[in-house]
Structures are given as structure tokens and as C-alpha cells.
């Protein structure tokens, strides 16, 4: 399996982090960064990660199902994650999630036909004091209102990059 030079370099760096006989430690980092490039955790990716870390494909498969950020099905180019856990729930997280569903016509873990947007209702993402919060891929959005979410989704649907959407600002650097 071939990856971009950037990802290859990253994998090499990962594998160098752990003792020589402990390459299996790189399984999860390789899976999640690999998913970012491949689009999903494919059988091919599982086998490749297994091969490079000395784990068996079954051991890697066991790992994939355990972690909620690892997906066997391809997600959208923009994976919109809305937190509805307790801190967000108290300040409109549920309404925000409903709005996201209404706006996109998608449900939990569904992807738009054009592959642009996918939705996921997620557990606490660590933005409780700036709730309700949304993550698009790995970027955080704090204190999101339903109106802002609409703008964000409209912008993404219009082919804009998240940073080009003026109404909402991602907070993570």
C-alpha cells in the first residue's frame, strides 16, 4: 500500500518513537493518521499497519472496533461532530444536533451522497466551558449557535473551506 510522502514520513517517525520490539505501540497513531489520508479504515490499511508494526491483522481489527474515532465506512470530507454530552446538553447541544440533522438531512454517522459532509453525535470533546461545541474534522468551534451552524454547513456545501466562512471561527490553532 502506498501513502503520500508526508504520511510515510510520519509513519516512520511514529515507528521510531517506541522500543524496537514494541512497534505495536504505533498501531493506533498509524490507524488514525492513515484514516485521515485513506478516508476510512480499509482492510488494506489494516493489513499494512499490521505488517509494519508486527501485529496480526486480527489484532489490528480488534483495535479498530474499540475506538470511536476509527471508522470502517468513509466519512465526509468534512466530518461534522456535535457534542450533546452533559455540559453541551445544558446549553443547547441537543438543539444544535437537531439543527445539524435538519440542515443536512443526515443522521448519526451518515454521509452526504456527494461525500462532502458527514454527521456524528459525539461524546464530550473537551470544550465544556465553551459549550455547545462542534468539531469539523479536528477543528474546534466553541459556543456555537444553531444559526452559526447553519452558516458553517451552508459554507461547506458551497465549497468553501472552513476558514473562509466568516460567521464562525475555529478556535483551535
Amino acid at each position: 500500500m502506498t501513502f503520500s510522502p508526508e504520511l510515510e514520513a510520519r509513519f516512520e517517525k511514529f515507528l521510531a518513537k517506541y522500543p524496537a520490539d514494541r512497534k505495536r505501540s504505533a498501531v493506533i497513531p498509524m490507524l488514525i493518521y492513515g484514516q485521515d489520508e485513506v478516508g476510512a479504515i480499509t482492510d488494506e490499511l489494516i493489513n499494512e499497519v499490521a505488517k509494519r508494526t508486527g501485529a496480526t491483522p486480527l489484532q489490528v481489527t480488534e483495535v479498530v472496533g474499540f475506538y470511536s474515532m476509527l471508522h470502517r465506512k468513509p466519512q465526509g470530507k468534512y466530518h461534522v461532530q456535535v457534542c450533546t454530552n452533559i455540559s453541551c446538553l445544558l446549553v443547547g447541544g441537543a438543539e444544535l444536533w437537531e439543527q445539524a440533522c435538519k440542515k443536512t438531512g443526515l443522521g448519526h454517522k451518515e454521509t452526504s451522497k456527494d461525500g462532502l459532509i458527514s454527521l456524528e453525535e459525539v461524546e464530550c470533546m473537551g470544550a465544556c466551558s465553551w459549550a455547545p461545541a462542534v468539531q469539523v474534522n479536528y477543528d474546534f468551534y466553541h459556543d456555537v449557535t444553531p444559526e452559526q451552524l447553519d452558516k458553517l454547513i451552508d459554507g461547506l456545501a458551497a465549497g468553501k473551506k472552513p476558514e473562509q466562512i466568516a460567521e464562525v471561527t475555529k478556535v483551535s490553532c
Binding site: D43, T56, P57, L58, Q59, T61, E62, V64, G65, F66, Y67, S68
Partner: peptide, 20 residues
């Protein structure tokens, strides 16, 4: 042989065979 593993998490956990 290690042909069996565990997939998924929590109450959805299942035993799985080594080749899909």
C-alpha cells in the same frame, strides 16, 4: 494460533475470526 479476537466495544462486543 490466535485466530479469535474481540471486536467492537461495550455491549456490542463480539468475538471475531482472524480473516474477516
Amino acid at each position: 494460533v490466535a485466530a479469535l479476537g474481540v471486536v467492537n466495544r461495550g455491549a456490542q462486543s463480539l468475538i471475531a475470526p482472524n480473516h474477516g
